[in-house]
Amino acid sequence: MATAPSDYVFQDEFTADSTYETGEAVSLWKDAWRRLTSNYFALFGLAVIVLLLLVAIVSQFWTPYPTWKQGIGPTYGGPSAAHPFGLDQVGRDILSRLMGGAAIALAVGLGTALLSSIIGIALGLLAGFYRGWVDTVISLLINVWYGIPDLLVVMLFVVIINSRELKWIIVAISITAWLNMARLVRGQTLALREREFVEAARSIGTRDVGLLTRHILPNALGPIIVQATYLIPAAILFEAFLSFLGLGAPPPEPSWGAMCAEGYKSLQLAAHVTLVPAFALAITLIALNAFGDGLRDALDPRMRR
């Protein structure tokens, strides 16, 4: 990568031959990608996530059997060629429901990550950038919110909205999940706003919106992405937990949590009804966390070599 041959020539000034000049190569993102792809655990996570995504998409158009249809075969039927993961307590095909559950899990995970990131980023940016009373109010809100149990918030929300539609579940989880993101972004913003390039941007007449969107946010993106990838498994787990308690997506939605809850009563009789969705949940969480860890290491400048 040759750097600029200076075509700024002073009167009778000699200009250097620039053939051998080089700048630093690889950019941060390229470098991060290289480190991510040399981390096998993270790659495994990525592979599982891609698989999950494919399954979720396919399930919207095709599943071996309808996810809600009961009495397809014998209740508590064990795995067979026709039903590789067996049948549940009302004779639904577990594989089909597992596929449908993948879509729900991803919708909840991604939806919550997106929504709570937006809330957290917006509040964090405002608090860190304007400081003063804006920061005082937002920080107070965050601290008070921390003190209130998430479950209570969600239960109240579900009761008030009086709906258990998936989109409301996502909203409910999001309003409990933005706190860490807001804290992270606030801290990043506080540090970045003192950086010289932000000061330089101010000196060339950049408005606050520009400072936030062009200078501060892009430079905080690394940690934000990492934090967001951790939000996904947390939300999936929380939704499963809610469904397990009967507060999640309403039946017959094939939520993995609900599937576990339904099979739980007959664990002795037919363990596969519980174990299959539990296993899917576990693998998904491990994969997402592995990917998040890999991403964190890859984006950490201290890990640069």
Binding site: F197, A200, G210, N219
Partner: peptide, 24 residues
């Protein structure tokens, strides 16, 4: 600015950096 490393936004291209004042 003093520090040519710290005073340029690492996420913007040179064209964007020099063009930003005009945009503003």
């Amino acid at each position: 600015f003093q520090d040519p490393y710290a005073s340029l936004n690492p996420r913007m291209t040179v064209g964007e950096i020099i063009g930003e004042p005009l945009k503003n």
